[in-house]
């Protein structure tokens, strides 16, 4: 069991209506459908992933967040909006966060931590852009154009008045890592944030 799926599942209520931005091959939505009887849609642009979703019975819409936005979705039309490992690949993560919380009561966001010690170490030592399990690309072909650290993300949330309800940290293989709990911004590779609008 991937730890991230297990963690996300705990935050989804039975029967929740879910939107998954960048749903990949539909693993998460399929899992939530089976474990939580969740309904909903995934958005994806990778043709192979879209075909896989359709074959496994996950409702998938071909839609590009950068060029098409999310205007076709109505306010508060979902219980939860998910975005796993895609925030760093969109042009305006800040606007996507706003949209997530316009469409859903809650958002769940996961992304790789650019301040993980191995990346810091790699950059410091070699002077080259770092690569890792969570970031396995070259600087010139990476889809990850908006890399940030856990601290950066939390600062953005504070600035936007977004409430961080929970945070869990896992390693690059999406497994729990007890060390990362002590010093997440140095030792955590991937964070899973549960966010909502600040209560007024």
């Amino acid at each position: 069991m991937r730890a991230d799926l297990e963690i996300i599942q705990q935050w989804v209520k039975p029967g929740d209506h879910v939107l998954d931005l960048g749903c990949g091959d539909g693993t998460l939505l399929d899992f939530l459908k089976q474990e939580r009887n969740a309904s909903g849609f995934g958005l994806e642009i990778n043709p192979d992933h879209i075909t896989t979703c359709m074959n496994r019975g996950v409702s998938v819409i071909e839609q590009n967040l950068d060029t098409q936005g999310l205007d076709n979705f109505e306010d508060n039309s979902f219980d939860i909006v998910l975005m796993t490992q895609a925030l760093q690949a969109v042009r305006r993560p800040d606007k996507v966060l706003d949209e997530m919380l316009r469409l859903g009561n809650e958002g769940i966001v996961t992304f790789p931590n650019f301040a993980h010690w191995r990346l810091r170490w790699g950059l410091a030592l070699s002077g080259r852009m770092p690569e890792s399990d969570a970031l396995p690309y070259k600087w010139y072909n990476t889809p990850n154009i908006r890399l940030c650290t856990f601290k950066d993300f939390e600062a953005l949330c504070r600035q936007k008045g977004i409430c961080i309800k929970s945070r869990r940290v896992v390693d690059g293989q999406h497994q729990n890592n007890w060390l990362a709990r002590f010093w997440p911004n140095l030792l955590g590779e991937i964070a899973i944030y549960r966010i909502s609008r600040e209560k007024i």
């Binding site: 043709p47 979703c53 996950v58 839609q63």
Partner: peptide, 15 residues
């Protein structure tokens, strides 16, 4: 597709 999404029907779409 948008009408189906709004009506919460199950729909898949590709261009």
């Amino acid at each position: 597709v948008n009408a189906m999404i709004s009506a919460r029907r199950k729909v898949s779409y590709a261009e």
